[in-house]
Design a protein around this nucleic acid. Structure first.
Lengths: 228, 228
DNA sequence: CGACTACTTGAACAAAATCAAATGGGGTGG
DNA sequence: CCACCCCATTTGATTTTGTTCAAGTAGTCG
């Protein structure tokens, strides 16, 4: 079932943060999050998807397999984020494969039901539109980073986002494996490792998955393009 | 004013292709496309935007200026495509600068009016949601290409898209300057030029802006990862 | 005709990928 | 409990790819 913590995540999710509680309960119906072990494939590229997937806890990676075997990570979604919106809403085949990269609890919202509510409720549609727009915007940002910035800067940006602070020191754990982070940032694990090494003399300490940043503002300056 | 050809473009636009004619006329109101000379800045990153911009003819580039002076091209929009949706709908500042890269006719749809119609009309909201989703999807594709593929392959993909065919031979003109295409594909003009040269022995002929592809399926195979 | 611009080409250089090997936990079975 | 293995990560050496800087070519427009 869905406990208070779960419910809080759903309420504050990107997709539904502006949706009022009664409506949200109605949309969800009697569904509750389902727990998946790490490494479980939720759907395959090309599958028909029955609903919108909302991550309640854990992480899911979305990737596309290219002809030559390598897979390109298209996104990694954590608590409060959703995926499969397009496929569910438009009833088109999934355009990436989804696989859990940690134990994860996923709430699946029935596509048919969502479509009905959407048709009846302009506010909801508007909220989702806003959410999609923000998603689009973040995608554009990522595109820009990927194009313009050298590896270490991208890593710096990623760490700053994780820190969630603008200044001072921060300590946190990496949310998932380094090789996956590397893939998400569009580089190889080796390059990622070297990039981290380069950030060491900018006040970033890495021990296993534990990260400490002495002065976030320093790192952000570097990310945004200060001189060495 | 808006002639039949203009109207056809708007009707088939990504955003409004599923909207019925009466509603569309109502949304547009008495506005008509405005002609802009090449190189005109439509709005600046950070500006407040009064409406959604729909390209009727010509091309517009969207780019962001990075701290270090260089500008990253975030998208190039041609006939039937729209931009500024997010900023207009959510009344947030524009997050990129828009500049025409050819003479262009742009239809601006009043944001306030759009919001009202959207609230009153679930079908319209749904259509826009679908459009946003597709946009998102194309963004993801682009992200994937950019991450995974070496230059020449990206160029091959771009050319295949332009060809609009799956097989046989194709001949067309590049829609805008090569240096801009290069920027869009995340590379320098020099690299783009060299990439084109490499595609020559795969049946691609370039003369000025005229392109001829002898066998599109060959090129697509290469793009998708065949051996040399 | 001449200057401008876009594009191409070349050479040196920098960044990142690849290949290969070493390190170091964490977990398993004895 | 300990030895051992497995796997993620790091590190090193090498090669590929793409950028930068510089020069040359060609088409265009005044």
């Amino acid at each position: 079932m869905m406990d208070a913590a779960d419910w809080a995540v759903v309420r504050r999710s990107t997709m539904f943060r502006t949706t009022d509680e009664a409506k949200l309960r109605d949309i969800i119906g009697d569904r509750s999050p389902r727990t998946h072990p790490r490494g479980q494939v939720l759907f395959l590229q090309g599958d028909h998807i029955d609903g919108l997937h909302l991550v309640v806890s854990g992480y899911v990676k979305l990737f596309r397999q290219t002809e030559d075997g390598a897979d390109a990570i298209v996104g990694i979604h954590g608590p409060g984020q959703s995926f499969g919106e397009t496929a569910a809403l438009l009833a088109t085949p999934a355009h990436a494969t989804a696989e859990t990269i940690s134990e994860a609890r996923i709430l699946t919202i029935d596509a048919e039901r969502l479509r009905t509510r959407l048709g009846a409720d302009p506010d909801l549609a508007f909220a989702m539109l806003a959410s999609a727009s923000m998603h689009l915007r973040s995608m554009v940002d990522e595109l820009e980073r990927l194009k313009g910035l050298p590896g270490p800067r991208r890593v710096a940006g990623f760490l700053c986002d994780l820190a969630g602070l603008d200044e001072g020191s921060a300590a946190f754990d990496l949310p998932y494996e380094k090789s996956l982070i590397a893939g998400r940032l569009g580089m190889t694990p080796e390059s990622f490792s070297r990039a981290l090494a380069k950030l060491r003399d900018r006040g970033v300490t890495i021990d296993r998955e534990h990260v400490r940043i002495s002065r976030v503002e320093n790192l952000r300056d570097f990310f945004e393009g200060e001189a060495a």
